[in-house]
Design a binder for these strands. Structure first.
Lengths: 345, 345
DNA sequence: CTGAAAGCGCTAACAT
DNA sequence: ATGTTAGCGCTTTCAG
């Protein structure tokens, strides 16, 4: 229960609190002797600055907040790693909060970030229109959105080219001879969900295929939703399934397994995001792969520049998602589904 | 950049700051009229209490910290959900930090928790002996350890019966006719790693089988380590593999796939922890399953009791892990590995 | 180069 | 029932 304050250290070192503070924080000139006395007093007492008091005084902390929409999604956890690495290089810590695709929870954590005066926030908004970040921006806390965007907000954004990637994946399925391509969509009130759907439609258009609303089902970016959506789509006799994120892909696979539907035998399958960060089970599933770690790094770098006071117009950092073609979508040269060797890296 | 303080609200409502504080925090008597004036002033100004100032004054926040050793492990993410639910019911928020099995990172986050004066901390220690929590306990911040324990620390702990579960899994493999059971072990400097190994040995002993150190390889609880350990063990011609956590199971499966070794055909396989929280791919893998959500809830409940000042001797909450027998370990009645229907719940 | 003093925003005694 | 005052621990002018 001991609480060592800066006064205790000062007393022990025989100096004033101001001197202790100077030694610890600034590069202001302090005589070598006093500096040493202070440092050994710090060591002797085990003094830790109270960051609340410091933050109250300086209105700045060295903690970044990351508010993500689903902590169970490997996409986010891998991204967080990237953000963490970037942050800790600059002496910042990263704390995470799980908004769970829930606007109320999200607002609570935005409030926590504001109240704790976090230095900056990386946010994957639960909704493109309903998520409000004024709580942060009015307090001068910079925000960078990741993965998803915010309609009408002047913030830096890190995104991947969802439209292009989804179109490419769709065209790949067309090349494989598929004509009835089912689409398991994500939350339509996120930009990510909307762009991927748009990319799918653009792919169909370019291939001269009609868009059939009955071949689209919303899975809400979650496992259960993906399973339910897949079950609904199966009634429409699709010859391919394009699933708009990794968690829903898990749901889709479980639905297919349950019905004994083989891929690519009975149906071509393409997912979005790899299922596990390093190397997934079922690594043979064709998927659009995002540079998750780089997204996190890039977002944190951008955020830190704002945090440190740089001023520049809101910036978009666009990274490329790439289609990794694997066994699950190859219908042109059908073969037994065999375990593929792990991808390099 | 506006910073609305309690004084601004007070001024607008025509009362003193103390009255505003009373309305917002205590159940002390304030006349209905003033209360209303204050509340509408709060609404009008968009006032948010500065939690640093409040924490500085009250030495208490309403944020719980969760420091976990690997954010990419679904075991932890599911646990965090449980903790979050328990916390938010009591009006607390949960922030997460990823120590990444790294003692330095872990210490940094323990320092953050101390400096931010978090109300309490849920910790999965990177090491049973080297992790130091005095930083928190000396400041009166309660700690509850989860999943792993701390040697010689007087803290509440939530654990599962790793020894019993590992022994049971081993005996299950023996019953399946296995005699050379390889063990992919976890970090031996964690209690969890040690207990699971001990349980494995106890199972062998009870079955009258010799313990062969060459059939044990450490995979460090990580995917890559699990793959490497499995590759080493395969040189010893095991007829079964028991893998001490979920990430390593992923590595093991990828090693087996790469060599074209089928399970249960060529080898019986048992894992620890299910691979995905809700329903995994490869759900046909026999595994010891932990009540992850309940662990998180139970730990947060315990922690919150401490936070709110209850005093009782350090307590152990032990939950039961249960062996879920699936296709991957069934060698007695071998059959083709078919997709199993999803387990209920 | 160092110390004294003020004050960040809030709440808890203490007055009234 | 409400206001006044002091002070949580820290940093930062301002003096010296």
């Amino acid at each position: 229960m001991t609480t060592v304050t800066i006064r205790d250290v000062a007393r022990l070192a025989g100096v004033s609190p101001a001197t202790v503070s100077r030694v610890l924080n600034t590069s202001e000139s302090v005589s070598t002797e006093l500096k040493e006395r202070v440092l050994s007093a710090v060591a002797a007492t085990g003094y830790r600055p109270n960051s609340q008091a410091r933050g109250l005084r300086t209105r700045a902390t060295t903690v970044l907040g990351v508010i993500i929409s689903d902590i169970t999604n490997p996409f986010f956890t891998s991204m967080v790693r990237g953000a963490e690495d970037a942050a800790s290089q600059m002496g910042y810590s990263v704390v995470l909060a799980n908004a769970d695709e829930d606007l109320d929870k999200e607002r609570r954590y935005l409030e926590v970030a504001a109240a704790e005066q976090m230095a900056g926030v990386l946010l994957s908004p639960a909704s493109a229109t309903k998520t409000r970040i004024d709580l942060l921006t009015t307090r001068g806390i910079p925000v960078v959105t990741i993965d998803r965007q915010l309609k009408g907000a002047q913030v830096d954004r890190v995104v991947v080219n969802n439209h292009r990637a989804a179109k490419e994946a769709t065209l790949h399925l067309v090349e494989q001879g598929c004509r009835r391509i089912g689409f398991v969509a994500g939350r339509s009130d996120t930009t990510t969900g909307a762009r991927r759907l748009a990319g799918y439609r653009a792919g169909l258009r370019e291939a001269g295929l009609p868009f059939d609303p009955d071949l689209v089902a919303d899975g809400g970016f979650r496992i259960d939703g993906g399973r339910a959506a897949t079950e609904r789509l199966l009634a429409r006799a699709p010859d391919a399934l394009f699933v708009a994120n990794n968690l829903m892909t898990i749901g889709a696979v479980s639905a297919l397994d349950a019905k004994g539907i083989a891929f690519p035998g009975d149906l071509a399958l393409v997912g979005f995001d790899d299922v596990m960060p390093a190397l997934g089970l079922r690594s043979e599933i064709t998927a659009v792969s995002q540079p998750t770690y780089e997204i996190g790094r890039g977002a944190a770098d951008l955020l830190l520049r704002r945090v440190r006071g740089e001023d520049f117009p809101p910036r978009d950092l666009t990274l490329e998602a790439t289609l990794h073609i694997r066994a699950s979508s190859l219908r042109v040269q059908p073969g037994p589904m065999s375990a593929a060797p792990p991808p390099t890296g």
